[in-house]
Computed example of a mutant assay.
Amino acid sequence: MNFSNSHSTQYSLFQKIEKIRRQKNKVPDTHITLAHGSGGKAMRDLIDDIFIQNFDNPTLSQLEDQARFDLASFIKQGDRLAFTTDSYVVDPLFFPGGDIGTLAINGTVNDLAMSGAKPLYLSCSVILEEGLPVETLRRVAQSMQAAAQKAGVQVVTGDTKVVHRGAADKLFINTSGIGIIPTGVNVSAHNIQPGDAIIINGELGNHGTAILIARGELALDTDIESDCQPLNNLVETILNVCPEVHAMRDATRGGLATVLNEFALGSGVGIRLDEQSIPVREEVKGVCELLGLDPLYLANEGKFVVVVGRENADTVVSAMKSHPAGKDACIIGEVIPSPSGVVFLKTAFGAERIVDMLVGEQLPRIC
């Protein structure tokens, strides 16, 4: 008897039996209890019913304390590893255009993509407040899996903790991710040079506005949805036509203004924006005027800044427009040699003002 074949058959049988067992281990409770974080059967049933059922893949189904990978498969795809982590505490958990689960997947996927990396694997750790409805957690896990499938990544390991009622606000999520940077791709703010073009892939401020309205703090009737989406496929489209992209960064907390200030400070250059070229929905402008906010500082979850040499800008914009996530892409400014570390905005009236780094927090718990 061939031992390897026998072992493979036995393991395949074990997987089938284990899958049947998990299908039977449904969570009988309607709300999270401290027992779900105890490490016992209640916790195992929760993990099987909510997370394994939704995220099921060969790596996760091992149920080890870590995910294991073949390094040779990584080397075939690139010469560097990208790694990132982020935590999500958004309030409310569900909002037009997404929820905390889609944020957790897309946010980490996008952080990897901004280095030019191809995102591959994610971890998922959750902190649950005692009393959280189990159905809420199930909805979030389903959203996470749908987002992961759309982005082409897998959730391969994770952790679950339960805290006493009042020690957290319903549900917090941490996701970490790894990806492979293709050989020859070198995306960094330090590459930015005078004369470079500043490109954005679409309208600003939709996510921040959607969250604000979802909190019920404004009696407004609007169809604004979060722009939460994965950007890795759009980044791949850009790199296919222009591997020499100088810098990329997603404009999440702090918005476009914060990203550009980070670029200007990190590369020792100045940046000039054209206000009339920056795409912002009229409804978002209206909310900002009503509350005294600036759309340049509003959070986004599906928008990013691309900096390329001016000679490549039109090619990059054209390629971006061919992708659904970049259909509204446009050039919004340029890099100037001085003054170093300063971002200017040319207003619609022809004047210029300085766009400084965000001070304080316009909207807390936005992601």
Score class of each variant (00 low, 15 high):
128 L>Y: 15
124 C>G: 06
206 N>M: 06
209 T>E: 11
172 F>G: 14
79 D>K: 05
186 N>A: 12
128 L>T: 15
105 I>K: 07
111 D>T: 13
114 M>Y: 06
84 T>Y: 05
91 D>Q: 12
163 V>S: 07
171 L>D: 14
144 M>T: 02
171 L>Y: 14
119 P>K: 00
99 D>H: 00
210 A>P: 06
182 P>V: 11
122 L>H: 11
100 I>P: 03
82 A>L: 00
127 I>P: 08
118 K>Q: 11
210 A>S: 13
87 S>V: 12
185 V>W: 11
177 G>E: 03
86 D>T: 06
122 L>C: 12
116 G>D: 01
116 G>S: 01
164 H>A: 15
141 A>F: 01
109 V>F: 09
181 I>L: 05
128 L>W: 14
176 S>F: 08
167 A>I: 05
178 I>M: 14
191 N>H: 05
117 A>I: 13
211 I>T: 08
141 A>P: 00
83 F>R: 12
77 Q>H: 13
105 I>H: 07
151 A>W: 08
209 T>L: 10
83 F>G: 13
86 D>E: 07
153 V>M: 04
201 N>V: 07
185 V>E: 09
77 Q>F: 09
172 F>P: 07
89 V>H: 15
178 I>S: 08
196 D>H: 06
207 H>M: 06
148 A>S: 09
75 I>E: 14
107 G>A: 05
135 E>G: 03
159 D>F: 03
103 L>C: 08
192 I>C: 02
211 I>P: 02
198 I>F: 08
165 R>D: 03
109 V>I: 07
119 P>F: 01
108 T>E: 10
191 N>D: 03
164 H>E: 14
99 D>T: 00
153 V>F: 08
116 G>C: 01
136 T>F: 09
156 V>Y: 03
100 I>G: 07
165 R>T: 03
104 A>R: 02
141 A>T: 00
166 G>L: 06
112 L>P: 13
106 N>F: 11
137 L>D: 12
126 V>F: 14
80 R>C: 03
177 G>P: 00
77 Q>R: 13
101 G>L: 02
204 L>K: 09
94 F>D: 05
133 P>E: 13
125 S>K: 12
166 G>Y: 09
132 L>F: 15
181 I>A: 04
120 L>V: 02
122 L>Q: 11
86 D>V: 03
108 T>Q: 07
108 T>W: 08
113 A>M: 07
141 A>W: 00
120 L>K: 06
145 Q>S: 05
131 G>E: 09
177 G>M: 02
103 L>H: 10
164 H>S: 14
213 I>H: 04
95 F>K: 02
189 A>N: 11
201 N>C: 11
94 F>P: 00
182 P>D: 13
148 A>K: 00
95 F>L: 05
204 L>A: 12
79 D>Y: 03
133 P>M: 12
194 P>M: 10
158 G>R: 01
196 D>S: 09
144 M>N: 03
190 H>M: 14
171 L>S: 14
209 T>K: 05
